[in-house]
Design a binder for these strands. Sequence first.
DNA 1: TTGAAAGCGCTAACAG
DNA 2: CTGTTAGCGCTTTCAA
Lengths: 359, 359
Amino acid sequence: MGITIYDLAREAGVGIGTVSRCLNNHPSVAAHTRAKVLAAAKRMSYQPHAHAQRLASRRTNSISAIIPYFTNYFFLQVLQGVQDRASELGFDLILYGVNNPSDVEYYLRRSLQRGRVDGVLFFSMKFPESYASKFPQMNLPLVLVDTFHPAFDSLRVKNREGARLATEHLIRLGHRRIAMLNASLNTLPSVERLEGYRDAMAAAGLPSATDLEFSSAIGGQDGFNRQSGRESMRSLLEKVRGGHSCTAAFVASDIQALGALEIAREQGVAVPGDLALIGFDDIELAEHADLTTMRQPLSEMGRLSMDRLVARLQGASLPPMLKEFTPELVVRRSSGALPPPGGKSTDRAGSRPTMIAAS
Amino acid sequence: MGITIYDLAREAGVGIGTVSRCLNNHPSVAAHTRAKVLAAAKRMSYQPHAHAQRLASRRTNSISAIIPYFTNYFFLQVLQGVQDRASELGFDLILYGVNNPSDVEYYLRRSLQRGRVDGVLFFSMKFPESYASKFPQMNLPLVLVDTFHPAFDSLRVKNREGARLATEHLIRLGHRRIAMLNASLNTLPSVERLEGYRDAMAAAGLPSATDLEFSSAIGGQDGFNRQSGRESMRSLLEKVRGGHSCTAAFVASDIQALGALEIAREQGVAVPGDLALIGFDDIELAEHADLTTMRQPLSEMGRLSMDRLVARLQGASLPPMLKEFTPELVVRRSSGALPPPGGKSTDRAGSRPTMIAAS
DNA sequence: TTGAAAGCGCTAACAG
DNA sequence: CTGTTAGCGCTTTCAA
């Protein structure tokens, strides 16, 4: 019910082996033979059968991406990079979105099935130890993105350094009492961002202020959400009214920072006037909210993770690689480093921020 | 290099046909034979080879989704619904993200390749007429989401009605001079939303005010972006300062409304005080910006489109279906229907909006 | 109910 | 350089 290489072979007056070679750009085919076959293929509008190819060649030309909560800007950007690059390389991307924890193992098992995919991209979740041996065993390449395991390639953001840079920005602006509004400390990024914050405080000789460290895991996604930001901000403002001084806050993610901004607005606290704020991620909303933040090279991470996977596919038998990305400070108004919006704004398509490359 | 049904057959002392039947729950197998085979399968931790199955059975158990600009909340939500349901049904979802127009044909061709996928979901773009005959011809089910073609199943939002409801909301609040800030009129949704706006104005006996209709396609994505919203809003305010009266605006999408809000803020125009605003979509940011808007049942559309595709897969030979969804009005502060934020806000996890079901 | 055998459409090794 | 042949791992007749 479809044209096969047998039809082409007959049409072109050659053997099926030759047809296959022509179609796959195998070098040892006479130029005129190739021309003849390709002409026939075009004439009959031949289309290879993907699964027959895959069965015979033992390569699927597809990879799976196992990715949490994928209605989230962070993942989306990374995914965009992955899909872009995959498409360029002729790979199909099978998307496995994790909505509850049990999905993870299901998708891992499915990906491990013989011959289903050539490789796996695993995002932002703790990689289950029980599967660590299965990938090498099945000889299936695995690349971790925004998470880490010693046995596999990982691409990560330098959370600690990013947090340090963010905090230093506030310190440079003259703040001494700086709060940290964090997500769940059960996640590695939160822990690392807390460390970076403390690093910067200590390095500046500022009194460690654990009384100004807040963390909330409320509202799902390990506290990386708006509600959690609201909650932490409320706690902070309460303490401030209770007599603690505090003039700035570093928030573990932009989405939490947006929640924090809402509370500030509700309670009449001016940002950056009364309280300077800096976030982390540079999600799209950050620009709209004029939020100073740390930008992560999201889609670039996606592209590079795909490249790494392909390198593995091609047999590179290197030791596990850890590639780390340093976030970049993006200065907007919420941190108080920029003058308030003034006069006639020449429109620069959404007020382009001042960039300061992070060392 | 993997366990095959031959291994299982030997282990269980039966033929490969029997093994296959057991694995596929074929009825005519003796209970104890089945038990024996399944035990062997478990013991040897057998995994079927996806592509061999697909080649032999002529079913791939996967579908492709061709989707534009997929770093966009609208598509993401729909996609989430699709992936959810696909996963429940045991289908793999192959994601084809369209970043430039030429991708569309490439992905359509790829999807049409014999045996690659069982069905195709096509999103939000004009379906190329030149492919309209190819799908029936290849007997490949196709479902359109947020777009329309008479020959195929379509799931759509009632843009015209939604726009009418939005405009009526403003009229009900007493506004008479209501602007419409639109995206590119080359897109169907924009045209329909404009019609709905005009419908409402006419029905209320308000003078048609084409001098208050703005549209901008600047900034990509056919004008469904923040920059375009800024641009339109700037034009509007200029006109107002030039003497035109206008107290409210219906914006074709939330993302444009956010841009409009930015300009209002920059130019010291109070929303909703000086100008009431209503958007369309109910993206996540809408809540943060306290934007009144029309909510579309995004993930439900995704799930239903998948269901429809599966129905087609199972051979239902029905006439093309058109399912339309009516957007729902979500009232927040930007339209001026709610009192300004007051006193001690009992926290309702992000100020839940008042809902008014749309007719 | 079951086993054997014939493909599904292609790739790749092997002669020539 | 090219044709032939043997699988890839499974599903599905067809007899038994």
